[in-house]
Design a protein around this nucleic acid. Structure first.
Lengths: 340, 340
DNA sequence: TTATGCAGTGAAAGCGCTGTCATATTCGAT
DNA sequence: ATCGAATATGACAGCGCTTTCACTGCATAA
């Protein structure tokens, strides 16, 4: 049933070599012959077999995208950006989640060493994940999204989280008059959490404000956990005029909702800010002051860098940095709220 | 650099046939020989080349997932469910968006006719999309998610939207005392919109309530559009005690926010309900009464059905139906709100 | 003894393609 | 007429694998 290059050759009355030449636009094929071949291709609706081609060329035009998880808007946007750019550059995208109940390594090494994909974009959000070790063994080009892997040469695309995080904390202190800021992060080993927490501590110290370890919480980025935590603590926070800096928008939303449930008004009695600037940030009331992270750009840029490496394997490792920016809305009680 | 079956054969001192036999666990290989081969495989960290294998076997263990769009939590959850199930069954998933500025057909036919994927799951949300026509030409097994394609035999996984939609409208009328319900849908040609609108009209008529065409709006499922529309109409709606039935949660959220902005209280002065039961539904205040659609199950089930078809190409076309259920929260003003 | 069967293995034929090399044709210049 | 170069095409090897078929021993049956 599947039509092969042989069929096309027969119909066009040429050899398969000529058909191949037409397909690959390599050497010049006589105009008339080319027309004939192209017609045959069209009539038979012929598509070159990817496997045969891959076998010869040792490449597939498929890129792998391995994320820690597929849950939520954050990853969804990365996928979207990556997918768009991949197609733009003539590649297909294969998405995998390293997490879940599956062993990330399995997936990763399966995908990469199979020779199926030409290169991969990996997001490593956990500081000592096994994924990192596995990456050391990966024989194909890969770019690390939002992280670094020691001892292995690779390209990377990172977000300058510090910039946004620092701007946020400064804003809370200088413009909103914060004296106490509670930090609600993700897991202790999570790279993003670490970066954001450090920025928070730095700015606090520079502003001569105390950094109380009791004011640092490590959850799992989920709405529910944040809601639960806040349900217990929100009254105390409000009483002490504390600000809450959540490491993502979802947790910020959970905290706001917990506050509302306790009859505490945000931002009048409690100020809460988030991180990421997902659409959630615009859906909470009050809308979230947050740090904008260009998620789909991350995906797109990572794919782009990967493709460049594929084109030129010799180029020195690149590290691209994307900026994160403070977005001021209402949840921090600041006067300078942007309009919708 | 890449180690081939040849290398393994040499190291184990056997022919490649034997190595292949060990790999495929087909004919019985002598225990001792097998051990030797397995050792060699391990020592060399050998992985069969996917292309060579695909070329012989005419199959790749890759499944395609083609969605109308990759934006938002709805699709993200489908991907997640599909991905998990695919890995569970030993397949890789390739995700494509038919939408965007890319021609869905191109992607679809490229993916399918290339012979790269063994089968595809396609979501066709537009009633007369070109995708449908393209599907007619697809030569590999495919399952349609949330739709039907006339004239072509295929499996499908659908959501019984009517059930949920009817339950919703009945609830609004019977339990909440709605006399006028405004319907805010997606595009006129969108399958889901059509289903939900029909259910809405049916129930309205059966309840002897007027269905005013002016009360039916067609937007694009986005928060922003819904917000804009509601900003103009929300006061009129509130004055006439209208209920708003939005065809997804995002639009419902936009409408609620527009109302709040105009100083109209939800659910006291205006009642708004959504559809899908994405996480957004729990993040709005008041939380959304909505219809739960099992998104990740959709993805998983579609993959499962596809794999069954792959195993048994002869089996008659299946149509699996997933249920949608009313979830009552606060935004409809009903007394029977569930707790968080 | 010769025939028969069977477990275990190797040789070799492709799968559909690309790319190298050889061959055929044409044309301008000797 | 003869040659060289340029142009256009075909024959064929080989990518790494699976699978068929043939072959080798060795045990059992006739």
């Amino acid at each position: 049933m599947p039509v092969s290059i042989e069929d096309v050759a027969q119909r066009a009355n040429v050899s398969i070599s000529t058909v191949s030449r037409v397909l690959n636009r390599r050497n010049i094929v006589n105009d008339k012959t080319r027309k004939r071949v192209e017609l045959a291709i069209q009539e038979l609706n012929y598509r070159p077999n990817v496997f045969a081609r891959g076998l010869m060329l040792q490449q597939s035009n498929i890129l792998g995208l391995v994320l820690p998880d597929l849950h939520g808007e954050f990853y969804s946007e990365i996928i979207r950006g990556a997918n768009l750019k991949a197609h733009e550059l003539g590649y297909q995208l294969m998405v995998s989640s390293a997490g879940g109940n599956h062993d990330g390594n399995t997936v990763l090494s399966a995908v990469s060493n199979h020779g199926l994909v030409d290169g991969i974009v990996v997001m490593v959000s956990d500081i000592d994940s096994k994924t990192k070790k596995t990456l050391g063994q990966v024989m194909i080009p890969f770019v690390v999204l939002d992280g670094q892997v020691e001892g292995v040469k690779h390209d990377s695309v990172v977000i300058d989280q510090r910039h946004g995080a620092e701007a946020m904390v400064k804003h809370l202190i200088n413009d909103c008059g914060a004296k106490r800021i509670v930090f609600v992060g993700g897991l202790k080993t999570n790279i993003d959490t670490i970066d954001r927490l450090e920025a928070y501590k730095d700015v606090m110290q520079r502003a001569s404000l105390p950094v109380n370890d009791d004011d640092v919480y490590h959850l799992d980025f989920s709405y529910e956990k944040a809601f639960q935590l806040a349900s217990k603590l929100v009254e105390d926070w409000a009483d002490t005029s504390a600000f809450v800096f959540a490491a993502n928008d979802e947790m910020a939303a959970g905290i706001i909702d917990a506050a509302i449930e306790k009859g505490i008004s945000v931002p009048d009695q409690l100020r809460v800010v988030g991180f990421d600037d997902t659409r959630i940030a615009q859906m909470t009331r009050p809308r979230l002051t947050t740090v904008h992270v260009p998620m789909s750009s991350m995906g797109a840029l990572a794919v782009e860098v990967l493709c460049q490496r594929l084109k030129d394997p010799q180029r020195p490792p690149t590290k691209m940095t994307l900026q994160s920016d403070l977005v001021v809305r209402e949840s921090c009680g600041s006067a300078t709220a942007e309009s919708l």
